[in-house]
Design a protein around this nucleic acid. Sequence first.
DNA 1: AGAATCTCTGTACGCCGTACAGTATACACA
DNA 2: TGTGTATACTGTACGGCGTACAGAGATTCT
Lengths: 258, 258
Amino acid sequence: MASNRSSAGDPAHTLALLWGVPAAPAGGRRGPRQAHSPAEIAAAAIGIADAEGLDAVTMRRVAQELGLSPMALYTYVPGKAELLDLMLDTLYAAMPRTAPADPGWRARAAAVADDNRALYAAHPWTAAVPTTRPPLGPGLMAKYEYELRALEGTGLDDVRLDAALTHLLGFVHTCARMAADERAARQDSAMSDQQWWEANADLLARVLDPARYPVATRVGAAAGQAQGGAYNADHAYEFGLPRVLDGLAALIEQVPDR
Amino acid sequence: MASNRSSAGDPAHTLALLWGVPAAPAGGRRGPRQAHSPAEIAAAAIGIADAEGLDAVTMRRVAQELGLSPMALYTYVPGKAELLDLMLDTLYAAMPRTAPADPGWRARAAAVADDNRALYAAHPWTAAVPTTRPPLGPGLMAKYEYELRALEGTGLDDVRLDAALTHLLGFVHTCARMAADERAARQDSAMSDQQWWEANADLLARVLDPARYPVATRVGAAAGQAQGGAYNADHAYEFGLPRVLDGLAALIEQVPDR
DNA sequence: AGAATCTCTGTACGCCGTACAGTATACACA
DNA sequence: TGTGTATACTGTACGGCGTACAGAGATTCT
């Protein structure tokens, strides 16, 4: 496997692909027309990922979905990494960009977080795409522009503005990864979190000596009970979002709120 | 590929392996002794990951490192997922647990974050191990116990204590992932972030219309200049850690500090 | 008409995790 | 002490992956 990573191919080709710039210098193109568009490729791949998970997105499978032979895909996309880029940028481009100037920056920031969370919820595999460099396509740019605007007017300088957004999005991503992991664990062990704990209660009881791990066993039990499982992404989000906003608020502080 | 994920195998076997509980019911074991210990397996695998990255950790490669045939590894470890569990738990077990009762919870929390960051720095691949459920071994338990204690005395109830720790560790993980991604991008494109931007300046200039993305281009340029690249994990950490701590402080608030 | 250029197919290579069958080893028990 | 049996380990093989490469067919330019 050469690379399963996003953005690992030749950057110029990737950018041209994402932005829909024709690779050839223009002029009448010889030879047969392509039977599909990059957008169709992306849609097919996204559909597979939504329905069967990221692992199901293979060059062979996507090609089959489009009625092509596997290698024909390579006339559309330089490689798998770029296909993943294309998938992500397509989703970014389609994200809602509704929120107008809300009264307060806090509400606007929360809306940005919620929008991202909704994307992860609709397409859980996006949390698992390993991106070395995010796909710098029109979708990501539009998303970035929109999200920066939501955080503007907080009195933060440009560098801090970018850092604040990165911080916020990182938090949402972490929660999304947790949610995706929960789902995956449930799916491939074919048992819920609760079942898992019950199945291993014996061995755990023997091994998790409360005398040795007093705080861990106490807190772990309390947390597990409260959340209906050891790890709960929803809870992490609801707990964490106000924390993140409070943290940013401490930076923004006395700046008059827009 | 059945599963490259951590913690995807039979849970009882995995737990037994991590805790060093013999799988067989005890008594004199017939047949030849194993030439290696699980700890040696873990060490060999960790060494490969450190030196050549997570992708280099294959069953064949680890076996070769130990002078074994590939399939012999399966007498030590049920599968690759469990090998990854073992690697992680081994590192967790070896983490420093020095910090005594620091004067303030803030310093203690920062120390926890720094310790985790140091682990990611020493073993960048750990940020990329996809964990469905964290490896519930002695290493993780000791780590969890230690880190909870660092955050105790803040007046948080047990559920919030767990949530706060998860929140903090999630942040560190996100930064580590960014750092690892930077490294990977630099490595497999054989060019630095700066070089990349220069190489693509033409196309980007043509396509990143400042009229269409005014805030994004302005902020992106400022951030890139300030950080010497578009994404900088160190900067994200230095910016983010005080944010996270401030966010937790808003929750802990008037509780007398320890 | 012929050359050029493009799309698409088929085959093949070197990886991966690991199932399975067979062989050598060392202890338990007669 | 001999023998049965559980164990460690080897070798081979399978199906899957990304994709290199060579050719076949289609389309347009000269």
